[in-house]
């Protein structure tokens, strides 16, 4: 499975698995090195995913034309009715 397509959760799980395998002590040095490399890539992609989306708070409204669109929503505290 290409690492680009893996969801955050899948990437994290794969990373956990790699650590487990490396800890098991049954890995040859070569296998450990490639596991390490894969782990590095996953660390990088997981970190990237955390910062992938930019902050956006939106609200669904009906435009003047009658269609449903989204517009930014201001989080200002309004007085209670």
């Amino acid at each position: 499975m290409s690492e680009k397509k893996m969801s955050f959760e899948e990437s994290l799980n794969r990373l956990d698995k790699i650590v487990q395998e490396m800890e098991s002590g049954e890995m040859e040095l070569d296998a450990m090195i490639s596991a390490f490399e894969e782990g590095q890539r996953l660390v990088k992609s997981c970190s990237a995913k955390l910062n992938e989306v930019e902050k956006k708070i939106e609200k669904v409204v009906k435009s003047a034309a009658g269609e449903i669109i989204t517009e930014p929503f201001e989080n200002t505290k309004s007085t209670k009715e």
């Binding site: 956990d16 650590v19 490396m22 890995m27 450990m32 596991a35 390490f36 660390v43 997981c46 970190s47």
Partner: peptide
């Protein structure tokens, strides 16, 4: 999340180094 990722990163470094 950041902590978790960092933990894993440290793990793989440590394990490879140990080996």
């Amino acid at each position: 999340f950041e902590k978790l990722i960092k933990q894993r990163r440290d793990d793989i470094h440590r394990l490879l180094f140990q080996q």
